[in-house]
Design a protein around this nucleic acid. Structure first.
Lengths: 352, 352
DNA sequence: ATTAGCACTCGATATAATTGAGTGCTAATA
DNA sequence: TATTAGCACTCAATTATATCGAGTGCTAAT
């Protein structure tokens, strides 16, 4: 073993496996790992002194650190990173399939994406025992399939927009002039004809304008467009789900002193998480952000495991878990991966 | 002043006003109120000794208590109760109108009750700086106004049910046989005709059964009924909104040691709150539950201020605020009252 | 390269001392 | 009779001090 202090070199095999074990131990117990108790606990064939030497090396290489001089070692972000990377290399994702019971039947009949994503997030948070986060697809990107107007009252009509994914937008619109059933039927057909196949954002951006300048074959075209435009205008996308914060309150280290502040900011400033998740959209697949790798001043001592999901071949959102840096990655990583694939499958099936 | 220890007697005027002041002081500062500092702070024309005598009496009467022998006094539940009752007597609810800005425009076009109640709850929690709770009307009680079936795919149709309040239920239903536009139009009329005017629960309970045994004037009546029944079957009412728990995390006394457990239980076991709120439905108007008056073992050190709201003349739900016993009742009571009236107004308007 | 031995560190825990805002009681006063 | 001044007492909170033990780094022997 080289006692030379080199800041960066590949780990020897033994070092690597010991580092793994240390990180694992710390994740499960939460107590700094000391040399003596460690060799004892795992009945290792080395003396505490040797272990100390190894640990010293790992500390020089910045995989471990000591909370204070006379304490055991805990992983640094780099240590966690090493651990997680090994996991990622070796993991067999094909397992785990049955662990979650997705309420597919209920989801199949649901037409509000928000509800669906709520169900998924709740599932993920309760399964992981951390907080689940989910960035939902921008509604603006979904493609219109059909528009239906339904009379509700003498001066109110219901605007229904069905998208290609099966998601439905419904809004009430108040109109001044009296419209007959036939008028509405005619409007519906006109709007469906003109808007079908376009994404919401295209419609907002240019289609409306074009249609207004066009000559149409129906009476009262203006009114039909007014109705549609009003209903679509503020198609809010809250597009961030955050579920199961209560789980984080059960983790002692998250509640302690200043860490609670991090937590509060996460809850309140949802934009922080949104920003983080949006960044993960740049690359497909599972991603882990450990401690300081989360590049937000406000958030300290947290990690995030997330993955992207797709509709067909297009990345549309991501879903993941937020928890303390000392997170059970071994359990969470495959869980998140699995969830991502479920969502992809679900959405893709819907949009066919 | 009678130094006799009588367990219950009406308070003298001075005692009452001092009790008021003590409770108020404790609510704002959170520190036990001591005799010396109290007379000092408010430049009262009595000596600390006199104040001690009065406080002693108030303690004998169980309006105040001492956290420990050599500390100042804090209110008991009975003390808070006295304070709140005086507030209720004297309050001028007519103020406060403009303090909240209700996003009426957005709400008007919203057809999903859940969304509307979400907005209201969020408003209430951010305005009160405590957690808002809201029990929504049972969807089962709402009355059907119209049913519309819309084709979505070759084997999928969209079931839309408009209720008298303007709330819309939408569900996807998969059908085996091919249905034409005309079929659906016919179904829609049939279902509207038969179900209109009935409440969902009636339909579930008996109407379906009756219709199945009846001879109908349309083809494929069975299929129409199947569709409707499937869509309505699990008309979930999550019917409890809980918003702004993060506010409670900012209150030191809620985070401390065991109190956090109460909080966690509130979040996780939503049934607790549901139970409490359901009880408030028995009586119209504002209600306050202080400390132990909340008859749930799990919840300690919390108070709830709630009020009922109506559709027309019928009590349908309640809305309120949960916070620490040391809550700013003076602010919260009229706020909750106002919110309740807003909701009543809103719903009543919708259902006309 | 490994290990035994040993002095040293320092957080955690326990114990004692100090402080200060509070009390109750009593006797004098308005 | 109600109020007040005076005084001894209480006790949580703070500060100071001692002890313990699991941990370390270093050195010399294996």
């Amino acid at each position: 073993m080289s006692r030379d202090i080199i800041k960066d070199r590949p780990l020897e095999e033994r070092e690597a496996s010991i580092l793994q074990a240390i990180v694992h131990d710390y994740i499960t117990t939460g107590k700094p790992v000391g040399s003596r108790s460690f060799v004892q606990k795992y009945s290792l064939a080395v003396s505490p002194a040797t272990m100390r030497n190894i640990m010293f090396d790992l500390e020089s290489l910045e995989y471990l650190k000591q909370p204070h001089t006379s304490a055991g070692r805990i992983p640094t972000d780099k240590g966690y990173r090493f651990y997680v990377n090994s996991l990622l290399d070796t993991y067999d994702y094909s397992l785990k399939e049955k662990e979650i019971s997705v309420k597919e039947e209920a989801i199949k009949r649901e037409v509000h994406l928000d509800k669906i994503f709520s169900i998924i997030s709740k599932m993920l948070s309760s399964e992981s025992r951390y907080a689940a986060v989910m960035l939902t697809p921008r509604f603006d990107f979904t493609v219109v399939k059909r528009v239906v107007l339904v009379p509700m009252d003498i001066d109110e009509i219901l605007f229904i927009l069905v998208t290609r994914t099966g998601v439905v937008l419904t809004k009430k619109v108040t109109v001044s002039s009296n419209l007959t059933q036939d008028d509405l039927y005619c409007f519906s057909n006109y709007l469906t004809g003109e808007l079908c196949g376009y994404a919401i954002y295209e419609i907002k951006d240019s289609i409306f304008e074009r249609l207004r300048n066009e000559k149409a074959a129906i009476n009262n075209k203006e009114m039909a467009l007014d109705i549609a435009q009003l209903a679509i205008s503020e198609s809010e996308d809250p597009n961030l789900h955050l579920e199961g914060i209560e789980n984080l309150l059960k983790i002692p280290e998250m509640v302690e002193n200043d860490r609670l502040q991090s937590l509060l900011r996460i809850i309140e400033e949802r934009n922080i998480i949104r920003r983080i998740l949006e960044k993960t959209l740049e690359k497909e697949g599972i991603q882990t952000l450990i401690g300081e790798e989360i590049d937000e001043e406000q958030v300290k001592g947290c990690s995030m495991v997330s993955t992207t999901y797709k509709i067909g071949n297009k990345l549309v959102g991501s879903v993941g878990v937020i928890g303390p840096t000392r997170m059970d990655y071994e359990k969470v990583v495959p869980l998140v991966d699995y969830t991502g694939r479920i969502v992809t499958e679900l959405l893709t099936k819907m949009s066919k």
